[in-house]
Design a protein around this nucleic acid. Structure first.
Lengths: 108, 108
DNA sequence: AATTATACATCGGCTGTCGATGTCTGTCAA
DNA sequence: TTGACAGACATCGACAGCCGATGTATAATT
């Protein structure tokens, strides 16, 4: 049931921003949550996620801070910035328009 | 209201196949129809469409034939093959799964 | 002692889209 | 009649995000 990766293009950003809007999360956790919530329709890998997180941070859309978890592992937690919130809203809106357009074409 | 081109990735194929499922069309016509039907949320250009049509034909998903239109201009009309019909159905199904997954994440 | 899971990271290759550019023909206004 | 525009085809290089492979380190499990 894995979805063609071409369709994924550009979706990592809005999805990450949306998840971080609820609570702070660390990278490895985001991967697990996304794959789980989509029933593995999405199969995110580190090579996809980490570069994206770094881009978002460089753009000032998210902030990061290191924490030591109960299991002793260091985790880099990400939080949404004000700028990131605005971007998230815009991206979700953009998805709505996009999906609407595609549905019009595919189910006319 | 143009949608970010990243999201477009991989959507040209299913959309073209779907349109050709209704009737044969020529390239320039497809561009106009798609842009019109999406209210310019999609803004397809020749550089996007023609290579895609050539890929689809090379893969045996569509056939082509030249015709001279009333206005004297030669047009290359495309039709869906049997193989293309199956691919179209699969792609539409894939879009449904994909959109479902994204909606689960963005509107949870 | 070896394997697995957690958790971070980078990098090259792939591939679809975009913008620019090109060609040819018919139409229509100046 | 000349020029501009629209219709209609096409190609090509640049760009950028995703994937797979690879790497490091530690804790827990077998």
């Amino acid at each position: 049931m894995a979805v063609n990766s071409d369709m994924m293009r550009g979706m990592a950003e809005p999805i990450i921003l949306k998840l971080l809007n609820y609570k702070k999360m660390y990278g490895y956790e985001i991967i697990k949550v996304v794959n789980e919530k989509t029933n593995n329709a999405f199969q995110w890998k580190e090579g996809t996620l980490y570069p994206c997180l770094h881009r978002l941070e460089a753009d000032g859309l998210i902030d990061s801070e290191w924490e030591i978890a109960d299991n002793g592992k260091p985790r880099k937690y990400y939080t949404l910035t004000k700028k990131g919130q605005a971007k998230m809203a815009a991206k979700v809106e953009e998805w709505s328009h996009f999906a609407q357009a595609v549905n019009n074409l595919l189910f006319a």
